[in-house]
Simulated assay, not measured.
Amino acid sequence: MCPGKAEGLVQAENQSTETQAGRSVLVTGGNRGIGLAIAQAFLAGGDRVAVTYRSGEVPAGMLGVRADVTSMEQIDAAFTEVEAAHGPVEVLVANAGITRDTLLLRMSETDFTDVVDTNLTGAFRVVQRASKGMMRLRRGRVVLISSVTALYGAPGQINYSASKAGLVGIARSLTRELGSRGITANVVAPGFVDTDMTAALPEDTRKNYLATIPAGRFASPEEVAKVVTWIAGNDASYISGAVIPVDGGLGMGH
């Protein structure tokens, strides 16, 4: 057997062992909604899961670390706690985000900058902190939770759409910087998802949204979670810099 082939087999065997043994996974904003479904999916797969949160309860079986992604000091403290309990973060899911929806002419500069600081700069902060451990391990998975509005656009969401579109640039630049270190970075872009937020929408608004979705329904949080766990797994180890829509055909590749 040639040395190159032998090395490849050993690397594949090591990856399989790592997956079976469970990885250190961190999901930001992982105690509710889509983030909770993602965290639960990794936990069900045998991984050691930690979540950051600002309020609410910590999901059973997970390590909860209180942290605001707009604070580098809080992020560093959270990672230090996770590393002490679970080891270096091997899978990072940057999910934490906020909305401040309003039309352009009514949108204040604070409405814009707060959303960008949380959704985009917040992702930068956690990615930068996680990459240090991943580079030492020479492996890692970064998954950025974006939105169909990132490339499709949405009225009243100039701030949100801009912040979510920026995640594509992070993933693709990170891929070019760290791809040779065994680190992948991908974007998952959900459309409308059945969460408490969409459940609270007026019935007419829900019907209008549903009429635009070729699938004729909203996604479940679990459907988004399954895509995230797949892209973070060994079967997707040769995929990086991709944008994967989970939107029932709404965006049509935009």
Rank of each mutant, 00 (worst) to 15 (best):
G4F: 04
L9E: 15
E13D: 13
N14A: 15
N14R: 15
Q15F: 02
S16I: 10
T19A: 13
Q20I: 11
A21D: 12
R23I: 01
L26Q: 05
T28L: 06
T28W: 04
A37Y: 09
I38Y: 01
I38C: 01
A39C: 08
F42L: 04
A44G: 02
A44F: 00
A44N: 11
G45F: 05
G46V: 00
V49T: 04
V49I: 04
A50M: 09
A50V: 09
V51S: 06
V51E: 06
Y53L: 14
G56R: 13
E57W: 06
G64Q: 05
R66K: 15
V69Q: 13
V69N: 10
E73T: 15
A78C: 14
A78H: 10
F79Y: 15
V82E: 11
E83S: 14
H86T: 00
P88L: 07
E90I: 00
V93I: 13
N95E: 07
A96G: 09
R100K: 15
D101T: 11
L105V: 15
D111A: 07
F112C: 05
T113C: 00
D117Q: 14
T118P: 02
L120M: 13
L120E: 08
L120T: 07
L120Q: 12
T121A: 09
G122R: 04
R125F: 07
V126W: 02
G133L: 06
M134T: 11
M135I: 15
R136Y: 04
R139T: 13
R141T: 05
R141H: 08
R141F: 06
V142R: 03
S147V: 09
S147Y: 06
A154H: 11
G156N: 07
G156I: 08
Q157K: 11
Q157R: 13
N159T: 05
A165H: 11
A165Y: 03
L167V: 00
G169S: 10
R172Y: 01
L174M: 13
T175M: 12
T175D: 09
R176M: 14
T184P: 06
T184I: 03
A185D: 02
T198R: 05
T198H: 07
A199G: 01
A199Q: 15
E203T: 15
D204L: 10
D204H: 11
T205H: 10
R206T: 13
N208R: 14
A211C: 04
T212G: 00
T212E: 14
I213K: 07
G216V: 14
R217H: 10
F218G: 02
P221Q: 10
E222P: 00
V224C: 08
A225S: 06
K226W: 06
V227N: 03
V227H: 03
V228C: 10
T229N: 02
Y238P: 01
I239A: 12
G241C: 06
A242L: 08
A242P: 04
P245C: 00
D247V: 04
G249Q: 04
G249Y: 03
H254D: 00
